[in-house]
Amino acid sequence: MTNKEWPLWEVFIRSKQGLSHKHVGSLRAADAEMAIENARDVYTRRSEGISIWVTESNNMFASNPNEADSLYEPSDSKIYRHPTFYEVPDGIEHM
């Protein structure tokens, strides 16, 4: 049998107001409307969400894990970006 599949979509769900959308998985759909509805039926059967984003998987671009050293490790040494790098004298509050 020849397979005429629907495109693959990635699904992101906001579980409640105030939180960002989070990737939950993927599904198949012929168009965006259907992808949203399928996401609703597949990924929110137990009230897991109040907002859905979908995007066709082939529109996703990802960083290359082989470049992780050069992409992310350089920031490890910049400890002065974190508040704990600094000494605050005793008695100072709210800083």
Partner: peptide, 30 residues
């Protein structure tokens, strides 16, 4: 009904996981 439907959902989550490995759901189903 809800339980059997969940099974469809679980199948779908799992096929999704195989697709992250480069497999194709419909080929697996075939």
């Amino acid at each position: 009904l809800a339980k059997v439907q969940d099974e469809a959902g679980h199948g779908l989550y799992l096929y999704s996981a195989t697709e992250t490995l480069g497999a194709d759901r419909e080929e697996l189903i075939d």
